[in-house]
Amino acid sequence: MLRECVLPSMLKGVFMNSSTTFTPLSEAEAGPVLLVERLDGTEQVCRRLREVGFCEKAEVRLLSRGGQIICHVCGTRLALSRKLANKIWVKPFSQTHPLFSQNK
């Protein structure tokens, strides 16, 4: 079954080292390409997220952050609530990718 692991914030450090940092999408940096690392939440929520493009290893760009966030995934602009964005854990994607490298 799907792992339902919501990381307590104090445990976040475990995943942090010099090269990779996991953050929820809601707290990630806006602009650069991010990589979806893991999804939290119920089976149904995860399935919905994956189908619209937030599957593991998918590339995401955060565009704006207010009450809700807007991001760019799979060639589409998606708006989602902060609560939902908290369930999407991402890490920076430094390597240039053919789909996005020329896009900036």
Binding site: L2, R50, E56, L99, N103
Partner: peptide, 28 residues
Amino acid sequence: PSWREVLVSARYERIMELCQAAQGRTSS
């Protein structure tokens, strides 16, 4: 154990390969 994830991500992996082959981007 990750059978649900695999179902979606396997499909997206192939789509990404396909898009890289058939799609080119310049400026937007």
